[in-house]
């Protein structure tokens, strides 16, 4: 169901493609960094908690 875009179809679609790509990159980067930091922090918290119990 492509809409009728006339002679500027390439430009309009390219604009949407470029923008969505950039948005996808920043979203993925943000979410992945957030997950990694959270996982590392949880691991470190677990280690710290264990040491506290050993002591």
């Amino acid at each position: 169901m492509m809409p009728e875009l006339g002679k500027y179809a390439v430009e309009v679609t390219a604009a949407y493609a470029v923008s969505l790509l950039l948005l996808a990159v920043i979203i993925l980067w943000t979410v992945m960094r957030a997950r990694r930091v959270k996982a590392e922090l949880d691991a470190a918290e677990a280690r710290a908690g264990k040491e506290a119990m050993d002591a």
Binding site: E4, L5, G6, K7, A9, V12, A15
Partner: peptide
Amino acid sequence: RMGSTVKI
């Protein structure tokens, strides 16, 4: 005037 480019 702008045709479909207005969608940008």
